[in-house]
Every structure is written in C-alpha cells, then in structure tokens.
C-alpha cells in the first residue's frame, strides 16, 4: 500500500446564504488517496461536487463554512489550522485547485507571468523575476505550452489555452494533491483530450503526486482515474476502481447514472440528464433516510427513514444502500 497523500474523515461544511439559511452541501464525506493515484468524483449537477472541491482545500470564506471533520495531507492535519498558515504553507504547495470556470479564473488585465510572480510572493519564495520567468518557461515547455503565453494577458488566450495555463499555474509549486473541478467540461473534444493528457503527464513527471478529478461525465473518468467515487446530495454513495464502477455499478444511483450515460446511441446530453427521473434534492432540507429514496426505483418504505451507512463489500469496494449486494444484483439481472 502506497503512502497516503490525502485522507478525509467525515468532513462536513455548509453554505450560509444571504437569507441566513444553511445548505449542507458536503455532509459527512470520507476518502483516502494514495501516492500516485487518482480519484474521480462523479454525480449530477447540484450533488455537491464543487463544494467538496472547495471544502477539501481547508481554506474557508463566506458563504462556505467548515463544520467538522479532518483533512490530512501527507500526514499533516490542515483542518483547524490558522487560515493564514494554510494560505502560506498549504495552498498551492501541498494542495492545489483548478476551478470549474477556468475561462474567467485569471485576472483579465494582468500578464500571466505577473500572476505567477504574485503566486511566488504569496508563498514567500524568494526568487528574482528572472528566475521566476526561467522556472515558469521551463515548466510551460515541459507541459507543451508556448513560452509567449507568459507575456500574454488572460483575455488574449483561447479557451483551451486558458485552461491549460490555469492547470500549469495551479501546479507550479508541485503540490501533493491536485483537485480539478470539471477541468475539461467546458472544452471542445480536442482541448479535452489535451487537458487529460496534460494531467496524466503531470502525474508521471511528479509535478503532482495524487489527484481528484471531478466531472459529471462518467466515460471520461474511465480512461483517466484509477478509482471512482459517486456523490449524491452531499454524500458519497459508492466507491470502487474505475473499471468496477463503470462495468459493475452497485448502488442504484450509480447504476442509473452509468446506465444512462453508457448507452451511446441515444446520444444527446438532455437524454442523459433525464435518464434518472427527477433532480437531486435541495440541500437546505435533505430528505430523511436514504437521500436517493424519492427517486429510487427500488425504494422500500424503510428507505425513507433509515439512513444507509457506507459498507465494505468485495475487495476495497464500498456502497451505501440498505439492500444487500445480492438483492441488487438480482434486481439488475431481472431488468436486463
């Protein structure tokens, strides 16, 4: 077993809205990633994936608030640390983030190199401008980005180039954990492929040592990450290897999600999204019992008041459903 790069224990965070309502978007998430491994997080829009990404950084600002749980990066507990220490010593060099909306992620009126200089200064890295430029140039070259980008403003770059630049900047301090929130979702297919290739290269070259890759498009994860976790309504409902999760999903939500996406002929995005009838619940008042019960084909009366816990099955696989694996296998087989 490899060294654990990121371990999260029962993490809970919430949004406090302008109207002083609490939204429990990450509600008891635990996970573990070993060195050199990548973990995909999948789920429909609104399931709390982006909030999970933000919550894992250990650096909170309104409207998001930390409630409880531990975040341990390479043996160091960062939850509960002084925010300014997190900013200086953790963000960027231990754990780094790629935002969902990379299109507008960089200050539009600033040259990329100036932005990199600010990142360096923020971590009290004492380097001359020339050294920073040379370092950035080298890193960009390895990642296949042209040097001119450094002297451009963000607005002058194309969408795919902007995304790859954001990735290069996020990882410039070689963090131990990279959290990428839908890094390729807004891109065309060619740019998507380049981004995914880039992520893989960064892992091989040791620029990052583990990765969480968030997406709502499951087929993407099959080729990219080692493991996949499915998230629903602020919780993890199933986890396994990419292969197991794609070909043998167990939880009724994963099953519906995979089933709905893998049928390639019936192609359009709309059809994929409506494949599971209904939408994820509003997390202001999450449903009691199993959160998926209102949409679950296999729900029994028990499901709407008993909260299913994560259970192990097979080797290292986990799921959170009241039904046993045998029962689920049986109903799925009957449906075929």
């Amino acid at each position: 077993m490899g060294k654990v790069m990121l371990e999260v224990k029962d993490l809970r965070t919430k949004y406090i809205t302008r109207f002083h309502e609490d939204v429990y978007s990450v509600d008891g998430v635990s996970l573990k990633i070993e060195e050199g491994k990548s973990l995909g997080v999948a789920g429909e829009s609104g399931c709390g994936k982006s909030t999970l990404a933000l919550s894992l950084m250990g650096y909170y600002f309104a409207p998001l608030h930390y409630m409880s749980g531990d975040i341990i990066v390479d043996g160091k507990t960062i939850s509960g640390m002084d925010p300014d220490d997190v900013r200086k010593h953790i963000l960027g060099n231990e754990i780094a983030y790629i935002p969902q909306a990379a299109m507008n992620a960089m200050n539009p009126t600033m040259k990329i190199i100036r932005f990199i200089e600010d990142v360096m200064a923020a971590h009290q890295i004492d380097m001359s401008k020339k050294d920073i430029y040379d370092m950035a140039k080298e890193r960009f070259a390895i990642l296949g980005l042209p040097e001119e980008v450094l002297d451009r403003h963000a607005v002058e770059l194309s969408g795919g180039m902007k995304q790859r630049t954001v990735i290069a900047i996020s990882t410039i301090l070689s963090p131990k954990v990279l959290i990428a929130d839908e890094p390729s979702s807004a891109l065309d297919v060619t740019s998507q492929k380049m981004v995914i290739k880039m992520m893989r290269e960064m892992m091989e070259k040791g620029f990052i040592r583990s990765m969480i890759f968030i997406t709502h498009e499951l087929p993407l994860l099959y080729n990219v990450t080692d493991d996949i976790m499915v998230m629903y309504a602020g919780r993890i409902v199933e986890r396994g290897t990419a292969k197991e999760m794609v070909f043998d999903p167990m939880h009724p939500y994963s099953h519906g999600l995979m089933g709905s996406i893998i049928v390639p002929e019936s192609g359009t995005r709309e059809q994929k999204l409506t494949a599971i009838p209904g939408t994820p619940p509003n997390l202001k008042n999450p449903p009691k019992g199993c959160r998926f019960a209102p949409r679950c084909k296999y729900a029994t009366p028990e499901c709407s008041y008993v909260d299913p816990l994560m259970k192990d099955f097979d080797a290292g696989r986990q799921y959170a459903c009241l039904k046993s694996i045998e029962e689920l296998r049986e109903v799925y087989a009957r449906e075929q």
Partner: peptide, 13 residues
C-alpha cells in the same frame, strides 16, 4: 469574479 476565488486558492493575499 471567478479570478478572486481562484487567486485566493493559490494563496495570494
């Protein structure tokens, strides 16, 4: 703007 959040997560003051 998005760049405010991103800059924060890069550790910029």
């Amino acid at each position: 703007a998005d760049y405010v959040k991103y800059s924060r997560f890069l550790g910029i003051k």
